[in-house]
Computed example of a mutant assay.
Amino acid sequence: MSGSGLSETERAGCVKILKLLSRGDLQSLSDTVTNKMIVVENETEALETILSFTKNAEELLRRKKVHRELIFRYLAKEGVSMPPNSEKHLLVKRTLELWTPGKRSTQKMDETRQSLHTGTASDSRRVEEGFDSLLLGQQFCQWFFQLLNSQNLSLGQPPQDWGPQHFWPDVKLCLHARAGSEQKEEFLGAELVSRRLQALTREERLLLSPNLEPRGLKTLASPHGLVLVAVAGTIHRDKNCLGIFEQVFGLISSPQEKNSWKIKFVNMKIKGQDALGGMGAAPSLTYNSSELQLLCNS
């Protein structure tokens, strides 16, 4: 059964948001959209009924039971950062934009994906000529943070395929946390780095929301194949914003594998609530171009 006015993308997105509702809210929403004319037996039936009686995606997102926090959490899981105090109508607008990308940008992303997924030496000149490091950075961050956030079991979604396979064997993680006390940690090797990053979301139940706007994302490509992706964002647990983070990834393509970019190093800074200073806007990077250039050359 398909919603009369929903595209496949909108339907898939609506399903993800509806699954964040409590059972009671889902039942109540089903009663509202059908005017209590249809009795549903379980959550699956309620979900299908809501979708089939929804004229368009905006109508569903604006329902009272679809709370602001749910849309915020959904966007964060999809790698889309919004200021923590964003009003609901802005979150609805951003969600609808996410579900209806322009044909031109979609085509450009598809072309870039095709070129990025060819890791062979014979293709390297073509990749260099048409290479868009910023687009790679946006795609990488959407993929990485969606994958990492899915390890947070309190979000009630199945964890995706996280593991050491996404890292180079000699990957290095530098973690610098300042929340009350100062803490520095270093990890070497794909297994250890993978486990430590996973612990942020699985054990510590954090949700990392990257800011993929220009002030929150910078990229730099070196001639010898390393691409730096630097991103800032906010850190949440449940409904609380705990602080901000900055993360710099070093990516190198892997010729042997179809999905050819792997993580070579990760530098992560975490600042606690005191660093927010009443921040209303999404956080911006403090790294400047020369600092990134040094990392690129090291």
Rank of each mutant, 00 (worst) to 15 (best):
L147P: 03
C141H: 03
D161A: 09
T32G: 02
S154L: 07
S209R: 15
A179T: 07
D123Y: 14
G130V: 10
E186P: 00
S284Q: 11
S105C: 14
W261T: 03
R104I: 09
L91P: 05
G130A: 13
I270C: 05
T201G: 07
A121Q: 13
H224E: 14
D170W: 09
Q151D: 09
L217D: 06
A282P: 03
E87M: 01
F265L: 09
L29W: 01
N56W: 15
P164Y: 06
Q107I: 08
Q107R: 13
R68Q: 03
V40P: 03
L242T: 08
A281G: 06
K239S: 08
N267D: 01
F249Q: 11
P214K: 14
A221N: 06
T95R: 01
A221S: 13
F140M: 11
Y287N: 03
E128G: 05
S289H: 10
R62Y: 02
P159K: 01
L220P: 02
G24A: 10
N56H: 15
C14W: 09
V229I: 14
V266S: 06
Q146E: 12
L60M: 14
N297T: 08
L285W: 08
N211C: 12
Q256Y: 06
R215V: 09
R113K: 08
N42Y: 11
T120N: 05
L18T: 04
R73P: 00
E246F: 14
T201D: 05
V92N: 01
H117W: 11
L197G: 00
T286H: 11
E41W: 07
T112P: 00
L206W: 12
L116N: 13
E246R: 15
V193H: 03
M1W: 09
K262P: 02
K19G: 05
R68N: 01
E58H: 12
R126N: 10
K108C: 02
S289N: 12
P101D: 05
C241A: 01
H224K: 12
V15I: 15
T219L: 05
G216V: 05
T100D: 15
Q151G: 08
R104Y: 06
L208G: 10
E185V: 07
L61K: 03
R104Q: 14
I263A: 04
K269L: 05
R62M: 10
S260Q: 08
G189I: 01
T9N: 09
L200A: 04
L173C: 11
Q273P: 05
M82W: 00
I71K: 00
E246W: 14
V39A: 14
I17K: 04
R126S: 11
R202Y: 04
S122M: 09
S52L: 15
R125Q: 04
Q27L: 10
I263R: 05
E186I: 12
S290L: 10
A232Q: 14
I50V: 12
